[in-house]
Simulated scan of single mutants.
Amino acid sequence: MNYYFEHAGALAPLAVAAITFFGSFLNSFLTRNGDRTKIRSASLVFIDKVINERDWKKRENRIVIEEAFEQLYSKPFSFEEIKILVYSESPNAAFRTYLKYRPRLEINDKRTKFKFQSGKKPYYLIFKQKIKLPLCFIKGCFLYILFALPASYGMSWLSKQGIKVLTIENMVILSVLDVLLWISAIIFLIEGIKYHSSVNELLRDLADKFENN
């Protein structure tokens, strides 16, 4: 570990220069869309060389590549994640969609694609895997109802009778709890809606870099 940090420190001047230079190429490359013939440009040649050149495969040197992508997206990426995403059909869209659903994804066993983590799929297969039950959406709606019903009843009760039977202090406490129930209900609903469409977005933006099974 000390060896790693000693070499990483020695690479600091290189990192600053490389990130600036590397980032300018990435910015132009990753914002492009289109077929692979257009993507195969000078930017791709440079990125391909940086990622696959033997010296850059050394663990202590990968910090430069990881730092460059973190600067672009304000999120940390591992070297393996970068290698998969940068060669997708639309890299910029792939990076952003991957970040959106990252908490539920992992790299597959072959280290070539992403897939849903075990138990994190947004659907459940039934009838011999012929029908996809939208598990996330159903769960989100159920939890919304579970939290929204008492929140709605509590708000109604507080508005009608609360001031008559409660002190101002207790009224405030119960009102805050009621608001928290509403917030929880809305979060669960939004989460269910968000992941309901995740498969379509992942297939659209990551294409052959997403393993849907």
Rank of each mutant, 00 (worst) to 15 (best):
S90F: 15
E70F: 02
F210N: 03
V179P: 00
I138A: 07
Y4L: 14
P122F: 06
G23K: 06
A18L: 05
T20S: 11
Y73L: 01
M155D: 13
E81W: 04
R204P: 07
R111I: 12
N27S: 15
E191N: 14
E70V: 01
Y195A: 05
F5D: 07
R36P: 06
I173P: 03
F21E: 02
Y87W: 12
R111W: 04
G119T: 02
T167P: 06
W157Q: 14
I19C: 04
E60G: 03
H7S: 12
F46E: 05
N33V: 13
N27I: 06
L180C: 11
K121I: 15
H7Y: 13
P134S: 04
S156G: 03
S197W: 13
E53A: 10
N2L: 10
S90Q: 15
I173E: 11
L177G: 09
W157T: 11
S78D: 14
A15N: 09
E201C: 04
K194E: 12
L158R: 08
R104M: 13
A10Y: 01
F137V: 14
F147G: 07
V45L: 15
L203M: 10
F77Q: 03
C141T: 12
Q117V: 04
Q129H: 15
S43N: 15
P91F: 00
E60Y: 09
V172R: 14
L99Y: 09
S118M: 09
F79P: 08
I168Y: 13
F69M: 03
L85P: 04
I65H: 01
F5P: 02
L174M: 08
Q129N: 15
N212S: 14
F137I: 15
S43H: 12
F137D: 10
L181N: 05
A94E: 00
E66V: 06
S184W: 08
K110M: 13
R96C: 01
F127H: 13
N108V: 08
A148D: 07
R32M: 13
Y144K: 01
Y123R: 03
S175T: 12
S28M: 01
N213G: 14
K132N: 10
V86Y: 00
L181F: 08
G140P: 05
Y98V: 05
G119R: 02
G140L: 02
E201S: 04
N212D: 13
I187K: 04
S74T: 08
A94M: 02
P76T: 06
F147K: 06
T31C: 03
L30P: 03
I107Q: 02
N92T: 04
I131Y: 03
G162P: 06
K75C: 05
L189S: 00
S24E: 08
I163T: 14
V86S: 00
I193A: 13
I173M: 09
S78Q: 14
V172P: 08
I107P: 04
G140V: 04
K160D: 06
T37Y: 14
E89F: 08
K57S: 14
P76A: 05
I65R: 00
I19F: 01
E201Y: 05
K113V: 03
I163R: 11
F5A: 06
R32Q: 13
S184K: 11
V64F: 00
A42H: 10
L72Y: 02
I193G: 07
A15Q: 12
D205H: 10
E80P: 09
N108P: 06
I63Q: 04
S156Q: 07
F21I: 03
S159H: 15
S28N: 11
V165S: 12
E66C: 07
C141N: 11
S41D: 12
G162H: 09
L11K: 00
L105E: 07
S184D: 05
